[in-house]
Nucleic acid binder design. Sequence first.
RNA 1: GCUUGUGUGGCGGAAUUGGUAGACGCGCACGACUCAAAAUCGUGUGGCAUUAGCCGUGUGGGUUCGAUUCCCACCACGAGCACCA
Length: 793
Amino acid sequence: MYEHQKIEQKWQEYWQEHQTFAASNNSKKPKSYLLVEFPYPSGAGLHVGHVRSYTALDTLARKRRMEGHNVLFPIGWDAFGAPAEQYAIKNHIHPKDAVKANIKTFKKQIEELGISFDWNREFSTTDPEYYKWTQWQFLKFYEHGMAYKAKKNINWCPTCKTGLSNEDSAGGVCERCGSQVYQKEKEQWLLRMSDYAEDLIQGLDDTNFSDRVKIGQINWIGKSKGAEIDFKIGDENLTVYTTRPDTIYGVTFMVIAPEHPLIEKLSSKITNMDEIKKYQEFAKTKSELERTELSKEKTGVEIKGIKAINPVTQKEIPIWTADYVMMGYGTGAIMAVPAHDSRDYEFANKFNIDIIPVIEGDTLPYTGDGKYINSDILNGMTNKDEAVHKMIDYLEKNKIGRPKVNYRLQDWIFSRQRFWGEPIPLINCPNCGWVEVPEKDLPVRLPDVANYEPTDDGESPLAGIDEWVNTTCPKCGGKAKRETDTMPNWAGSSWYWLRYMDAHNDQEFVSKEALNYWGKVDWYDGGMEHVARHLLYARFWNQFLYNIGLVPNKEPFDKRTLHGMILGPDGEKMSKSKGNVINPHSIVEEFGADALRVYEMFIGDYEKDAAWSTNGLKGCKRFLDRVWKIGEKLNDKQGYQNEVLVNQTIKKVSDDIENIKYNTAVSALMILLNNYEDEESITRDEYRTLLHLLNPFAPHITEELNEKYSLGKPLCESNWPKYDETKIENDNYELVFQVNGKVRGKMEVAKETSKQEMEKLAKENENVKKFIEGKEIVKIITIPGRLVNIVVK
RNA sequence: GCUUGUGUGGCGGAAUUGGUAGACGCGCACGACUCAAAAUCGUGUGGCAUUAGCCGUGUGGGUUCGAUUCCCACCACGAGCACCA
């Protein structure tokens, strides 16, 4: 029908030459900062999923520019981290070169889609000019006591040979390769993210994230309210954390985690230490090998020779150790109330421990509300919250406990034993300890070496490069060694949106002026898979920068939307092994970028997954062919023949783009075209408006047609169409007649028809008459502009 | 198990937030053009009946003149977390 390749190339060159999409850092126009998650430039090339997200915000960006906004719509590359490194190892190239080649491919593929990115602000997280500032910001964390090194049991992936954060090893499985992760004790850098748990929850109030996103964040942070209670073991204190202090009268045993330090401390008093040591070993191997096993039969050993004293009842309580209590949460110890907790119940049943109900109920373990029994000061109460309060008051008064809030969120393990990451810019001096690399010496560059594969001994590959490791102490000038761990791949993505504001600044990570001008990201689109990790890290990082006065907003993103995945034609997630991958490049070649863009916007609800359909794509291509062809019906007239429909369409498309309802926006344009096709000929205004509204979706063909028929300035340099509020409603409408809520007739009537008139018309309708004849009219409901419903008996 | 999302034709999906269910597209059927096919164009298309009727938005109940929309219970599928005290 038309030669899409030529046209698309032509207009891409036009935009490039005219710098149509360059954002200005000082403009009187209203600003819009639109952001998509920057991609990993993997060897596989661009995915149709990228196309969906980029086209969606591109549509918005193009529309807003035409509405007179100064739009910042940038792109860059998140190129550090395991995927890039593994690709490089596999293909025997230096990661630096692999990344360079992949970026080139990605860039070409994005450019041929006609996405209106401001390429002037492009960078990669692997550019020394960029990671210099990532390192610089790490030093800010360090200077403020927010980064620390600690010997920690970390999640170790034996395949990737590196430590992982909790977020990266959810479920005991490596996020990257799927290997079983096990606990390994190692010195690691950590960021004190847990200090920000509450702020990260509170901050959500300052955002316009959807509830789905907010809930995702809140769940990950995992706040729980409860109390700490001190039990005595002789002179020692055993503090437990519980959310149900009101059930303390039902405690029949204590459980402490196998790694709990109290075991070591009291070992002289414990009479079955051999048995306990054996259990500790068992628990350790279990966590290594059988963690995901479904059989979660409770195991444990009673610690003999010591007893705890319930501080409220003064009763002696036996102490057990069991691996269903984790050292990493709360205090690593619990008071077990088998009558009202299913796990404690299971344990008590298995080991024949007493079960004392303290809240009335039929079945055990009973966890609902009820009347308190066997509970001394709480007896007779029926309200759980009141009982909890009363008990906490009692604990506080008697100095045996206190209210306590716990979070699941832990500190961020920030070390990786990999080559392809930002080196942590610290130097270890035998005299001075840890010393920062001075700002003038940043960035600490990665060396050019031949061997960057991970080692088996758990050290970073950098550790083997003597000439890199050995350095002098910036403080005392003596011999010292560099830190050889690198940062996780989440580091570079934790502040990249700030850099776009001022991408080539070599004096600061971003200037104050740029920060103040651009403020928050107005709209951030990305995938569900990043709601837990990336979004949390990025917000944490930004909140820290805010707290030390480096950025003007505590929350970095105002609005966050989630795109659904594009699945293969078979409805399965696209993957090489399934052979259901659709390559955007070949689609562009065969059908054109415009067709691909329109199709991906039309494919369905933006937030939901959708299966690829080549027939659906063809339908969109057909639509564009018809848009092209209808130019032949152009007459010399101005104005709109069907004013209502055109004005309605302008309104609908404008609103739908802002409300991420791209599918219905495209549908509205199809309806408009269908209407044009029913006309003898179409006016110049009609054609221009159709092309203009379609332009954000299909920017090439619409510019070409606009030029071909000399309809006006290029669309990208023209003002977005405005609708006439007085012309979006018809003078007539179809009045619906119902009897008992069922449609029995319809009639075209004038907009201003009165209620009385409507009722009269309803009763006169032949078909309605049939249904009300001989029946008693109970009442008549009349909705002006819509319907009349006659209720009969 | 907990959290969360989703259930509408053969398929992807619409539905002004309580008011004509199935817009738009795909697919399919028939027709036109063609020697023929593809492409294109036209007509039709929820099911059952076929004259105007009945049934239909996962299932069962409820509220209402009226429910895809609100309430209760249940079922199915997907995602995330998973012994978090």
